[in-house]
Design a protein around this nucleic acid. Sequence first.
DNA 1: CTTAGTGCACAACCTGCAGTTGTTTATCTT
DNA 2: AAGATAAACAACTGCAGGTTGTGCACTAAG
Lengths: 306, 306
Amino acid sequence: MRTFVVVVDTGQFQEAAADLSITQQAVSKRIAGLEKNLAVRLFTRTARGARLTIDGQAFLPHARELLRVAERAVASVLPGSRPLRVDVIASRSAASGLMRGFHRAHPEIELDVVMLFDVETAVAAIRSGAIDASFRAVAVPGRPLPEDIESVWVLDETLQLLTGPAHALAGARSVTVAQLAGHRIWMPGIVPGTEWAAYYDDLVAEFDLTIEATGPNFGSDALLDTIADTPALATFMGEQTRLVWPADHGLRRIPVTDPMPVYPHSLLWHRDNPHPGLAALRAHLAAAAAGHDAAGTWVPGWAIRR
Amino acid sequence: MRTFVVVVDTGQFQEAAADLSITQQAVSKRIAGLEKNLAVRLFTRTARGARLTIDGQAFLPHARELLRVAERAVASVLPGSRPLRVDVIASRSAASGLMRGFHRAHPEIELDVVMLFDVETAVAAIRSGAIDASFRAVAVPGRPLPEDIESVWVLDETLQLLTGPAHALAGARSVTVAQLAGHRIWMPGIVPGTEWAAYYDDLVAEFDLTIEATGPNFGSDALLDTIADTPALATFMGEQTRLVWPADHGLRRIPVTDPMPVYPHSLLWHRDNPHPGLAALRAHLAAAAAGHDAAGTWVPGWAIRR
DNA sequence: CTTAGTGCACAACCTGCAGTTGTTTATCTT
DNA sequence: AAGATAAACAACTGCAGGTTGTGCACTAAG
């Protein structure tokens, strides 16, 4: 591909060969191979160089795009000035939504989003420089963050009940946590040892709920299908979560109150990280963060919001 | 890259090898080579397969994107159901703007834009199936299009004078064609034998203008710079042309009247072309085409508008 | 703790392709 | 017609990229 583009830019095989520090014959072979693979002629050879055929003209922008993408791919793992790398707790979490919003606001800042196992891993990755920031629930003051890690509360993700149309609570305008006792709540894909697991463990212990975290995660489509079809099952879902909402499934979102369970997201980063994108992200989040009203909400005992 | 993505999707080298119909050792070598080139570890090898490292996670979306782009590149020259391929007369012409508008309205229709030499070439390409449509000025009824080529008038591109701030006509709100006599008008990049050349030849002959079509085209930036800096030079530019307008160059667009020179664009296509994108394009253009008022405009004698 | 099983890496080998040099052909220029 | 330029063809060669064979680390089961 690179040879093809160089030939286009130079207009002839010989100069392209000089540019690439190979022989003209090698260029000839490369182009011939490409043409053979694609089964089309890309150039018309003249006595004064090579001109693109119509197929070649159509192919050219795709070739350039491929080289751009390849360059970005390499840059994504290049130590030094690589894209801003942010860890989120789950692809469906509010943090992902925040990152999408940030990308819309700053499309010029290259972004890579990863998902690490838990806070400890994330903190270690931040300290090693492997990632630049992480959205997490910050742990208790008793086991404080290392001194070189800074954090700021970003938002509370309100959890709502999601049920099918035949569920016993489907008609409710809102439900209290106490009303959930006895109902089966299904949360597939919760990995033991992660903060999500700890979060739901604490919720279960405090309010005597029945949460089934078993089973692999087959994706949100399968989850929604099952919830829609199974009257006895419900699940929790973030209020801000935007899914591909299946039509005609009759799914219901029901607010939970007394108290309202929320998942507190904070942004963590290294005190000395000089990445310009990080400053932009913090500014964006500070601007986007709404007022903070913790009254009537529930978070696990180990979680703090600051 | 493909091997990398397959390993990610299968979770282990052995299955990836089976998927790719090669040996596990070959997969191991490929990944090792990729890791060596990138100078990062992409997987952590465990006794139950391979897991992505943080770098691997960041790299993955770029790798998938690369494969998508590669697929589109191949599709762009694949005979059969390839993207809609449209010829425009110049990248700065109104036809390019129309294609951008069409792409915005129908982003799902894959597009490739090419630029052919002249009408004859375009007609031949349409008849051979190499392109699906062409924006051109249609020639006289005396030398009619072949019967299997259909055409429809799309729009008139109004030509305006573009001058620098020190040009003699820079202060005019509008100029007549007669006033242009004696002024040097510079149109670099006009290739002899093309319709643009014929168009300006006719304009020169009919109104006794001085148009210099000499010199290679160094791009619109260089053109604008020269126009801005040279009091004695002006150029023609389509009214709809949107350029990267250099700040503080003081460039002036001046309407030309008595008559107003316009370049008539028609769409040409093959009667029997079944490409679904072509129907969409024709519908889009029909909807976008405004009323047609030819009064007071000038086109060459050989051009027709229908 | 042992033992079997799983999964990746290393070593040695082999094949073919991507590059080289040398030469020919075709076209444009003078 | 001669010379210059640009690409293709032909023959050769080294190494990239595959193979087989094997070893080692870790996991799971008894």
